[in-house]
Amino acid sequence: LLRDIARPVHSGIAGAFANDWLRAAFVEALVSDERLPDVITTRHDLDLMFCGQSSQVIAHGFNERLHVFEALEEVVEHLEAKADDIRSGQAAPTTVWFATPGDDADVIHQTIEYWAGLDLIALFHGNWSHGPNRHPQPA
């Protein structure tokens, strides 16, 4: 799923099966993606994907590859600092970001622009006004 979505690097995931697709992509990122990406999201988004059972996911840890924040503002600060670190020479794997834009689409878009040229895959729950949208269907 993530290979398919890798270009362009940000996409809205909309439609009746969006949540199922996002959960499958989240699992893929942490379990089977050989790039061993860092995965970043909020507890709210994790609860959306896992129907309120985020604590069961967070408890696992994933060798510090999973970063779950309470607020979008914290995610944005983390991502900006990480982009600065990468630009100053620090090695980092692919970063996969799960978010729900809603009223925060402009802030999220600024963060994506901050990551221009760096290795970020951003997957957004719902319609994404600043880029492409996909409507996944189950096989």
Partner: peptide, 17 residues
Amino acid sequence: LFTTQPVSESIALLQQS
């Protein structure tokens, strides 16, 4: 197209990893 997966199965996959 993708294969849908119940939440419980997703959690099990994550916890097995």
